[in-house]
C-alpha cells in the first residue's frame, strides 16, 4: 500500500468540444471550407469519449495522491468558456486552452501538432510520470487519428486505443483493457508511464456536479482562456470535394392493428429471407 501511495501521475487529457448530439446537423460551405449551419450557435458539449477519459483521469489522480490532471482543449475560446461552466464541476483539472476551430472538418495532423505543442508547454511536465489521455475517436471528425499523432510527437511508444480500463500496480506498471473486434477486450501490461490511452466508455458513471470543484477549477479556467494561443493550421493539405447528408429517409410503414402472432410470423419470414 505504501508503494502504491508513492506512485503519482501527471495526466494530460486532450478533449475538445462538439455539437450536442441531440442537435440536427447540416453541412454548409464557408470561405474557410466546409462547416456546420449555425455552427457558433449550436449548443456544445465536451466530446463524449474525451469526457469519459477526463473522469477516468480524475479518478486515477484521486487514487494516487500527488497526481495532477490537465485538460488540453483546442476550440473557439467563447465556446470553450461555455462548456467549461459545466465540465469544471465534474472533475478537478487545470485547463490549457488553445483558441481555434474545433470543426470535424479540420485536419487531424494539424490538430495533433497544436495539442502536442500545448502539452510540451506545460511548465514542469515530468515525462516519466506522464499519461496522455483522450477519447479514442472524436464525435466530430470521428477518425481516431489525432491522439496517436500527439503521442508520436511526444515520443510515446506505449499507446492504447479503445481503452475501457486501467489498473495500476504497486510498482507503477499497469494493465490496460482495450476494445478489439467481436465484442472482446485485449489485455496488455505496460511497464509504466509515459503512455498514451485513447478511451472508450470506461467504467465510471458521469460524476455529479460538484460546485466546490467547480469553484476551484474556475480559478484557472479564466486565466487559461485569456492566455489561449490562437491556432492557425500550418498548411491546408486536406481538400473537400463534397460534404452531403445521406439522402435516404425511409418511408416507414406503421403497422398498428396486427396481433402479436401475426407480427411474429411476419418477422420470422423477414428474418429467414
Amino acid at each position: 500500500m505504501a508503494a502504491l501511495m508513492s506512485i503519482s501521475f501527471q495526466i494530460v487529457v486532450c478533449g475538445s468540444i462538439v455539437p450536442d448530439p441531440l442537435q440536427t446537423l447540416e453541412p454548409v460551405t464557408t470561405p474557410a471550407g466546409p462547416g456546420l449551419k449555425n455552427e457558433m450557435m449550436l449548443p456544445a458539449v465536451l466530446d463524449p469519449w474525451a469526457s469519459h477519459s477526463l473522469y477516468e483521469a480524475a479518478n486515477l489522480a484521486k487514487q494516487h495522491p500527488g497526481s495532477k490532471v490537465w485538460l488540453v482543449s483546442l476550440g473557439p475560446k467563447a465556446k470553450l468558456q461555455q462548456v467549461m461552466m459545466t465540465v469544471a464541476q465534474k472533475a478537478a483539472f487545470e485547463l490549457v486552452a488553445v483558441d481555434g476551430s474545433a470543426s470535424g472538418f479540420s485536419d487531424s495532423a494539424q490538430t495533433a501538432a497544436a495539442l502536442a505543442e500545448a502539452i510540451q508547454g506545460i511548465p514542469g511536465l515530468d515525462k516519466s510520470r506522464l499519461l496522455v489521455f483522450g477519447g479514442w475517436e472524436s464525435a466530430s471528425r470521428g477518425a481516431g487519428v489525432t491522439m496517436q499523432m500527439v503521442g508520436e510527437r511526444l515520443g510515446i511508444q506505449d499507446q492504447f486505443q479503445g481503452v475501457d480500463q486501467i489498473k495500476v500496480e504497486a510498482d507503477g506498471s499497469f494493465e490496460v483493457m482495450e476494445r478489439v473486434e467481436g465484442g472482446q477486450h485485449q489485455l496488455s501490461r505496460c511497464a509504466g508511464a509515459p503512455a498514451l490511452l485513447g478511451w472508450a466508455t470506461g467504467n465510471l458513471p458521469e460524476p455529479k456536479n460538484n460546485p466546490q470543484i467547480g469553484m476551484m477549477n474556475m480559478r484557472t479556467v479564466a486565466p487559461a482562456l485569456q492566455k489561449a494561443k490562437p491556432f492557425k493550421p500550418a498548411s491546408n493539405d486536406l481538400t473537400f470535394n463534397s460534404i452531403s447528408l445521406p439522402k435516404q429517409v425511409r418511408e416507414t410503414k406503421i403497422v398498428k392493428d396486427k396481433s402479436a402472432d401475426e407480427i411474429a410470423r411476419e418477422l420470422l419470414e423477414w428474418i429467414q429471407q
Binding site: V18, P19, P21, L25, P27, P34, L36, G104, F105, A139, S140, R141, G142, A143, D237, L238, T239, F240, N241, S242, I243, S244, L245, P246
Partner: peptide, 15 residues
C-alpha cells in the same frame, strides 16, 4: 468517409 458520427458523408483529397 463519414463525419460527425455518420451524420454526413465527405469526399476528400490530399496532396
Amino acid at each position: 468517409r463519414w463525419y460527425y458520427r455518420q451524420r454526413m458523408e465527405g469526399v476528400i483529397q490530399r496532396q
